[in-house]
Design a protein around this nucleic acid. Structure first.
Length: 825
RNA sequence: GCCCGGAUGGCGGAAUGGCAGACGCGGAGGCCUCAAAAGCCUCUGUCCGAAAGGGCGUGCGGGUUCGAGUCCCGCUCCGGGCACCA
């Protein structure tokens, strides 16, 4: 399609201009009020795709808008450059992950520049850069010192064929290795953890004050999963030395416990399994070890539950009744939550109900269900009601019974009140090459020893070989492996695990405030200057892990003294961007359904593609990339063609007194400024664009009117205002048109965001709707300040209303001046 | 299985509990042109009607309200996430 102007030349010109002028660079001593705008830094997977375009368009709009508001905007960019794909590519092609990654960074950088997104490139960070690794490692050492990092055993996916650990992604749905096809096992390894659970309560409570989408906060709340209940011991019958500890959120139902269940991984399983049950229990344990947790939860149907539990041969005593109940092992109980064992109350828990049915176990209700419960299918009842069959709890409501039962447990000395979290400590060890090495060494004499800070960074060697099995080259590199003990200088072995890349992304926003610092991760003053991030933008898929880890890390850094005096919450506002779908599924590299933006840059241009992403729907919503998308993007290109022609046409203008038609245009301009400002502030970019389109339509009609030429002042105000509003959305064409209209003056992006005149958006008269029984029967123009009595009188004298009433007497008249009157008959 | 979302014309979407469908895409007709493209103008939820006008209409079933796309209860279907909230 032929364009009204040379899109490519205009866009390249202004991209170079912003770079050359350093328009969006900011120094730490900038006197303006700060605004920290940040998009989640991308994993460099190659040239940008539409998800990036969408994300960085929203970010760039924020940067330019806040700048026009007079703020000193910090707009940094970097790359999350460690990660599995580069390592996989190395295994496949032999290219070192650094070479591969840096080529991908160059591609993505080029895409971002062509999008017209502006950054302070002087602050660019790559997480694989030794200057970032150094501080990553120093922070690790400080957390370790403070007791926030520790080692413990944890299961990993182990491929016996490859002799290596697999990421979840490398385990296929059928439980086999994606390289060798071997059946993947679980194997316990000694690994590093961060003690995020220490902050569970704070991370939960602080959510309330964050200006985040409710949905993201809800996801985090559920993830942390605080639950109050009781923990108590079950004595194994005939084994006075052995007790099994259980956690429950429903201690009030204890009289209904008709059996108990342990996780297959529970350490006491061997102890309590009798000889005749050993075979069945072993079979179950092997089965559980071969399933993923999601498989263990996906097979929720009753038939499968039968196969998923085995009797241990032992019984435990219910402390409330004093009676023995059978003890089972079942995979639906997980070792990772609570105590790894539960009391089962089939009458009040659906899963226990299904299991009990399958194994022929008794069911005793302890809460009276509603009368029609059994008639309507029955089953487990977990709602509220009166306690029954529960001795001293009978007649109580559930809340009271909970409290009373815990008191009883404490009096008897067998249990206590307990708060439990679903959140577990953060396992940060990865058995990978392309990540930040963990700065520890192992000495036979002194055990695990921290690397002295003056030896940082520990950087992986370059002369490594990538085996097709995926084994980390670090564990095979003799030169890296062998070192000396920092304490006695004796022989020691380096830690070969690297850090989860979520560690890198948990503090990069702090490094951006002071990326040049060679003495410390960042100067506290710099962090204090810019933190917290005022606007964080990124995909909803990061709503839980990344954001939770970053919230934890910020607090940990403050508490170990590295970031004194900053807000404990790193991200005040979070805009959770929706996903882009194609053919009904998420657009992603692994699905092979990416749409690159380069083609659009070459044809309609970045401005039109940006306008499309803003216009297509609310930023939080998912969007579908469909056949029609192409036409909508073309429509956005046509919008700029019209804008160009309107702004550059030899328009005849008039001076002198202004007419009512001129006033109407001025009112529309100011109304648009008010609407667009409000919409940008509430992230309603699609309606902001729609308002600009409406204004262009109106201005065009004004320019084409045959009865009178436009008034010069009105015309100039309209065009200049429109250019300023659009400047944050589509920066190149607006900069060019502004320069055309104001040669030699500061660029449109250095102008102040337009203000509206309240006088001009005030409405003197309003269209009042008159309904009869809720149906619109008439509309009349009334004074905006009309009184209730006048509005009612006007409504009741309307001819159309009288006709609709058909002689009936109104029973009631609802009057909402000046918008609406509803006559009820 | 659990958690989080979503559902409005042919399509993307708009709408402080108060005129459903702004804006755009697509479609139809017209102007301009030798012709086409581009541009400009008009119409475009659906049914009945020549028209004026009227009926119906926001996934389904209930409820609250003078009034519900919007709030409440119960479903269906679609999308995403997951480490079985005991």
């Amino acid at each position: 399609m032929a364009r009204a102007y040379d899109v490519t030349a205009v866009e390249r010109k202004w991209q170079r201009h912003w770079d050359d002028e350093g328009t969006y660079q900011i120094d730490n001593d900038d006197p303006r009020e700060k605004f920290y705008a940040l998009c989640m830094y991308p994993y460099p997977s190659g040239a940008a795709h539409q998800g990036h375009v969408r994300n960085y368009t929203f970010g760039d709009l924020t940067v330019r808008y806040q700048t026009m508001q007079g703020k000193g905007v910090l707009s940094p960019i970097g790359f999350d450059s460690f990660g599995l794909p580069a390592e996989n590519a190395a295994i496949k092609t032999g290219t070192h992950p650094r070479i591969f990654t840096e080529a991908r960074i160059a591609e993505l950088t080029a895409s971002l520049r062509r999008l017209g997104a502006v950054y302070d490139w002087r602050r660019e960070i790559h997480s694989h850069d030794p200057s970032y690794i150094k501080w990553n490692q120093l922070i690790f050492l400080r957390l370790w010192e403070a007791g926030l990092a520790y080692r413990a055993l944890a299961p990993v996916n182990w491929c016996p064929g490859c002799q290596t650990v697999l990421a979840n992604e490398q385990v296929l749905a059928d439980g086999t290795c994606d390289r060798s096809g071997d059946i993947v096992e679980k194997r316990n390894l000694e690994q590093w953890f961060f003690r995020i659970t220490k902050y569970a309560d704070e991370l939960l409570e602080a959510l309330d004050d964050l200006e985040w989408p409710e949905r993201a906060k809800t996801m985090q709340r559920n993830w942390i999963g605080r639950s109050e209940g009781a923990e108590f011991d079950l004595a194994v019958q005939g084994r006075p030395d052995v007790t099994v500890k259980v956690f429950t959120t429903r201690p009030d139902t204890s009289f209904g416990m008709t059996y108990a269940v342990m996780a297959p991984e529970h350490p006491l399983v061997d102890e309590v399994t009798t000889a005749d049950q050993r075979e069945a229990v072993e079979a179950l344990r092997i089965r559980a070890a071969l399933s993923t947790d999601i498989e263990r939860q996906a097979e929720g149907d009753t038939a499968a539950l039968g196969k998923r539990g085995a009797f241990t041969g032992s019984s435990v005593i219910n402390p409330f009744t004093g009676s023995p109940v059978p003890l089972f092992v079942a995979d639906y109980v997980l070792m990772g939550y609570g105590t790894g064992a539960i009391m089962a109350v089939p009458a009040e828990d659906e899963r226990d109900w299904a299991f009990a049915q399958q194994h022929g176990l008794p069911i005793v209700r302890t809460v009276q269900p509603p009368e029609d419960w059994d008639a309507n299918g029955g089953g487990a009842y977990s709602g509220d009601g009166v306690k029954i069959n529960s001795s001293f709890l009978d007649g109580l409501d559930i809340a009271t019974a909970k409290a009373r039962s815990i008191d009883w447990l404490e009096e008897q000395g067998v249990g206590e009140r307990k708060v439990n979290y679903r959140l577990r400590d953060w396992l940060v060890s990865r058995q990978r090459f392309w990540g930040c090495p963990i700065p520890a060494v192992y000495c036979e004499e002194h055990g695990v020893v921290p690397v002295p800070e003056d030896q940082l960074p520990i950087v992986a060697p370059d002369d490594v070989e990538f085996l097709p099995t995926g084994q980390s080259p670090l564990s095979l590199h003799e030169g890296f492996l062998h070192t000396t003990c920092p304490i006695d200088g004796g022989p020691a072995r380096r830690e070969t695990d690297t850090m989860d890349t979520f560690v890198d992304s948990s503090w990069y926003f702090l490094r951006f405030t002071d990326p040049w610092n060679t003495e410390q991760p960042f100067a506290p003053l710099a962090a204090q200057r810019f933190m917290p991030v005022d606007q964080y933008i990124g995909g909803i898929e990061h709503a839980i892990l990344h954001l939770l880890y970053a919230r934890f890390y910020t607090r940990a850094l403050i508490d170990v003294g590295l970031a004194p005096g900053i807000d404990r919450e790193p991200f005040r506002h979070y805009l959770a961007q929706g996903m882009i779908r194609m053919d009904g599924t998420k657009m992603s590299k692994s699905k092979g359904n990416l749409i690159a933006p380069e083609h659009y840059f070459d044809t309609v241009g970045a401005d039109a593609l940006r306008l499309f992403h803003l216009f297509v729907g609310p930023p939080f919503d998912d969007m579908d990339w469909s056949e029609q998308t192409e036409q909508v993007i073309e429509g956005c290109g046509r919008f700029f063609d019209r804008l160009w022609r309107t702004c550059t046409a030899e328009q005849t203008l008039r001076t002198g007194a202004q007419t009512p038609a001129d006033l109407a245009v001025r009112q529309a301009v100011h109304r648009t400024i008010a609407d667009v400002t409000r919409d940008v502030e509430r992230w309603s970019y699609n309606t902001a664009v729609a308002h600009c389109m409406e204004l262009l339509n109106l201005v065009q009609r004004y320019g084409n009117a045959t009865d009178a030429a436009p008034h010069a002042e009105v015309w100039d105000e309209a065009i200049d205002s429109l250019l300023k509003l659009l400047a944050v959305m589509s920066p190149h064409v607006t900069a060019e048109l502004w320069e055309h209209r104001h040669p030699g003056e500061p660029s449109v992006h250095l102008q102040r965001w337009p203000a509206f005149d309240p006088e001009l958006i005030r409405q003197d008269t309003v269209m009042m709707v008159i309904q009869v029984n809720g149906k619109v029967r008439d509309r009349i123009e009334v004074d905006a300040g009309i009184s209730e009595a006048d509005a009612e009188a006007a409504a009741l004298t309307s001819a159309k209303v009288i006709e609709a009433l058909g002689g009936a007497t109104p029973k009631r008249v609802i009057v909402r001046p000046p918008r609406l009157v509803n006559v009820v008959i």
